[in-house]
Structures are given as structure tokens and as C-alpha cells.
């Protein structure tokens, strides 16, 4: 790989030798990676390889222990204003983590209101527009418990979008969805990229990964094993570990 030793302030994200420890256990081991604006990154790898840990470091839900994380030329460390950082880096969780006591509309408007101090009316207008964008405008007044899995996933994405982020992190967004709902998420993610939003997505679905990635980051044992475009990754992976991983996937 031909990365500079120093982080590149021109990139949306520039990561150098990022490491994370849980006590003695090395969860992330010297990860280096540059991500462009509007780029779609998919993180693949066996279970326990550190994929979730990696994307959680990007919005500092998990603080890293060493190395450099730079977003738009700014170094992210313990001095970073977390409210501002998380406004720029949104996150969508595997089990959505929607707020069950709030309606769909309130789920989307609560953070802009509290964090950005946007008046309720304006925050809800934005929320309605974003809900329409992800195709569930008519569900605005329902509670999460009344929605299907696919609809809930769209609410989770809409909730992140309402903060107007530059980067959205997805941790296994399709784990509980049927193929039709997965196609819907593909459309949404590609639409985000078209708007210039950078997406970093962890997934186990190979077909899904192929349809929403500009580059595949393959991880194993806390390390980045290879970074390749999807066509190449799925036909001719460079690393032996990736080959073994893909063989394993095909067998199931």
C-alpha cells in the first residue's frame, strides 16, 4: 500500500496506525486507511476481527489508544468536542436502537432539538422531509413497535440523516432484513453517496457488500489484511486470509 506515514488532511478520513486495546487484548492493530469524500467503504472480516470496534472508533464511541484519526484535517482525540464530532459522523446500529417511547417523527427530531437547539417545528419539518427521502413519510406518527424491521431500519437511517452528517457508519444494517428490504437499503446508501455523504458499512452479506462499496476493507485479528475494489475482492482476493474467508462464506 502506498500511504504516507503522515495523515492526509485533504481526505475526509485519514487513519494512521490506529490501535485499540481491551486490557491485554489487541482489538485493533495499527490500522491505516484514507477515505475520500462520498466514498463507500465496506468492512468485511470474520467474527471478532474488530470490524465493529473499528467503526466505533470513528465517532469515538470507543476511544482509540494510539495512532492518529483525522477527519477533514482535524485530529480526533480526547480534546475533541464529542457533540460536534457526532454531529458530523452519524451511526446506524445493527438492532436500530430506536427510542421506543418516541414516535418516528420524534425519534428523528429529538437530537436536532436537544443537541442543535433547533426549534421543534423546524426540526420536525426536516424530519418529515428526511422520512420522505427514505420512503416512510406516512409512518411519522407511529411508534417504533408498530413498524416492520425494514421500516425500522429506515427510521434509524433517517434519524442519523437528520443531524446532517458528512459520514455515516453502518454496523450490519441488513442483519435482520429480507432481500427486498436489503435492496431498499442499497438504494438509500447509494443515494447518500450521490449526495456526497461518506459511508462506512460493516456487513456479513456478500451480495449487499458488492452493491454498496467503492472499496472493500478486509480485516482479520484486528488488522487490515487488504483494501481492494469489490470486483477484484470477490474474484481475486490478494490475501490468503481473504480467500479462506470467502471460501468459508460460499460454503454456507
Amino acid at each position: 500500500m502506498t500511504l504516507n506515514r503522515l495523515p492526509d488532511p485533504e481526505k475526509r478520513l485519514s487513519i494512521r496506525d490506529l490501535s485499540k486495546l481491551y486490557k491485554e487484548f489487541v482489538a485493533l492493530d495499527h490500522i491505516s486507511l484514507d477515505i475520500e469524500r462520498g466514498e463507500k467503504i465496506v468492512v468485511l472480516g470474520p467474527s471478532g476481527s474488530g470490524k465493529s470496534t473499528f467503526i466505533r472508533c470513528l465517532n469515538r464511541i470507543e476511544p482509540h489508544d494510539s495512532g492518529v484519526l483525522m477527519i477533514d484535517g482535524k485530529i480526533i482525540d480526547q480534546k475533541t468536542d464529542l457533540t460536534e464530532l457526532r454531529g458530523r459522523v452519524g451511526m446506524v446500529f445493527q438492532n436500530y436502537n430506536l427510542f421506543p417511547h418516541l414516535t418516528v417523527l420524534e425519534n428523528c427530531a429529538v437530537a436536532p432539538r436537544l443537541v442543535r437547539r433547533i426549534p421543534r417545528g423546524k426540526a420536525e419539518d426536516t424530519a418529515r422531509r428526511v422520512l420522505a427521502q427514505v420512503g416512510i413519510a406516512e409512518q411519522a406518527s407511529k411508534y417504533p413497535i408498530q413498524l416492520s424491521g425494514g421500516q425500522q431500519q429506515r427510521v434509524a437511517i433517517a434519524r442519523a440523516l437528520c443531524m446532517d452528517p458528512e459520514i455515516i457508519l453502518f454496523d450490519e444494517p441488513t442483519a435482520a432484513l429480507d432481500p427486498e428490504a436489503i435492496s431498499g437499503v442499497v438504494l438509500i446508501i447509494n443515494d447518500l453517496a450521490a449526495q456526497g455523504i461518506t459511508t462506512v458499512c460493516v456487513t456479513h452479506e456478500m451480495g449487499f457488500a458488492r452493491r454498496i462499496s467503492d472499496r472493500i476493507v478486509f480485516m482479520d485479528k484486528g488488522r487490515v489484511q487488504e483494501i481492494t475494489p469489490p470486483e477484484e475482492f470477490f474474484t481475486a482476493p490478494r490475501s490468503a486470509r481473504a480467500r479462506a474467508f470467502l471460501n468459508e462464506m460460499i460454503r454456507f
Partner: peptide
């Protein structure tokens, strides 16, 4: 669920907001 406060924090909410509203 622990995921509730995690999601709220990921949206940039302060600890006090997370407690009071979520």
C-alpha cells in the same frame, strides 16, 4: 437496553439529555 444510551450518545446528546429524554 444499553443500546438506547449508546444510540443517544452517537447522536451527540449530552449525558444529562440521555438520562432525561431517553
Amino acid at each position: 437496553d444499553r443500546g438506547q444510551s449508546l444510540a443517544a450518545e452517537a447522536l451527540g446528546m449530552k449525558k444529562s439529555h440521555v438520562y432525561w429524554h431517553i
